[in-house]
């Protein structure tokens, strides 16, 4: 099965970089296609079209304990009938759109892994400690997922 792992985030906005860090760490250990993205708009489709399976790693903010790891489906994050915010497309909208426009090329399976963040307001390249601790755990999860 052709799989891609995509990390989304801002590399210098502390915990927002967690998705990117997971992908960087993973690609040091495992030979798998990876991509890093800084937005959740159409570029997500540019990366995942043509793959059988996509694993997308992003930061999430729900108010739970920082470092908490969530495995989500598109519907889990597709929480609103207002598909866009005022500035950008959400990840869920982009993915749904992908299935409407490119049904034959979209991955049959998309797994979303989200990590609860603490600080996405201050600039810095390091994640906060609890979020940093989640990184190797997520890397292991993805390795298991790939070897399935």
């Amino acid at each position: 099965m052709k799989t891609i792992v995509v990390g989304i985030g801002n590399p210098i906005l502390r915990d927002d970089s967690v998705g990117i860090k997971v992908v960087e760490e993973l690609s040091r250990d495992v030979d798998v296609d990876t991509a890093i993205l800084t937005t959740t708009n159409f570029e997500v489709l540019d990366k995942i079209l043509g793959y059988d399976k996509a694993i997308i790693v992003d930061a999430i903010q729900t108010g739970n304990e920082p470092g908490t790891i969530y495995e989500l489906s598109i519907d889990d994050i597709f929480v609103t009938y207002s598909f866009t915010n005022t500035h950008n497309l959400t990840l869920a909208t982009t993915l749904k759109l992908g299935y409407v426009i490119f049904p034959e090329k979209m991955p049959k399976e998309i797994k979303l892994i989200a990590i609860e963040v603490e600080d996405v307001e201050n600039f810095g390249e390091e994640c906060t400690p609890k979020v940093r601790e989640a990184i190797p755990k997520v890397v292991e999860m993805i390795k298991r997922e790939i070897s399935k």
């Binding site: 989304i8 801002n10 906005l13 927002d16 937005t39 959740t40 992003d58 930061a59 999430i60 903010q61 994050i77 929480v79 609103t80 207002s82 866009t84 915010n85 950008n88 959400t90 990840l91 869920a92 989200a114 963040v117 996405v120 307001e121």
Partner: peptide
């Protein structure tokens, strides 16, 4: 610069 999920 930030787009953390759910991103809306």
């Amino acid at each position: 610069a930030t787009h953390v999920l759910p991103g809306r």
